[in-house]
Amino acid sequence: MLPLYWTLVAVMVIGIIGAVVPAIPGISLIAIAIFIWGLVNGFGSVSIPLTVAIVFLLAGLGVDFLATYYGAKKAGASKWGQIGAIVGLVVGILGLWPALPVGGPLLGILVGPILGAIVGEFIYRRDLKLAAKAALGIVVGSLVGNLIQGVLAIVTVVIFLWTTFPNVS
């Protein structure tokens, strides 16, 4: 039982990293690990951490959206910039970046939204300076959202450890 516990905790640590780094599952991975522990030991042992994980997962989605939206709005981004960032993210993950020998998809995830937002804004406004400012707002908002999700993920894992560790050892 102890090896499973520490394996699930390791998965949760990956979930914490994923809450901050795009394209790696975050709080959802933590919730799955808690759910697995509940399957093995009964859900009564994880009712609080599982509830917290689900609430924080939903809150994290909302925070991510609102932070990106607020950053874009503060920088004066249009819907074209936001759409461009989303398209850039998809192209960055699936496009040419994965062909790179080192860090391809991760680099695509980081660079794709920036370039996509710039292209989207430039198509809409025909002003490269405004396009770059809007793209920066989208990226900063997204980063703030990721940091908040990271904090929510850490709190979720701490609650899991606090409620379950005394019964494991």
Rank of each mutant, 00 (worst) to 15 (best):
I17G: 15
S47T: 14
L147T: 05
G15K: 01
A132Q: 15
A132I: 15
P25Q: 15
L100T: 08
V52Y: 08
V46N: 01
G26H: 02
V158T: 05
I17P: 14
G145A: 12
A75P: 01
T7D: 06
P113F: 13
A134R: 02
F43Q: 00
L39C: 11
A67R: 09
L89F: 11
L89A: 11
L94W: 15
I48H: 02
A53T: 01
A72Q: 11
V111W: 08
I17W: 15
I83Q: 09
A131Y: 06
G104L: 03
S169V: 10
N146Y: 08
F165K: 15
G38Q: 00
T68S: 13
P101R: 02
G103F: 12
W162M: 10
G62H: 08
L61Q: 05
L147I: 13
I27S: 03
M1I: 04
G42A: 04
M12F: 11
Y70A: 15
V119S: 02
I36K: 04
L147G: 07
V90D: 06
K74Y: 05
L128T: 09
V46Y: 00
I123N: 07
A10N: 13
V13S: 10
G60E: 00
P22V: 09
G15Y: 01
D127R: 01
W97K: 14
L8Y: 03
K133F: 02
G137D: 07
G104I: 06
P3Y: 15
L147F: 11
V9I: 15
G112H: 01
L4I: 14
L106C: 10
W97L: 15
A33H: 08
W37I: 03
K129C: 04
I36D: 02
Y124M: 13
V155F: 08
W37C: 01
L8E: 02
Y70H: 14
V168Q: 09
A72K: 12
A75C: 04
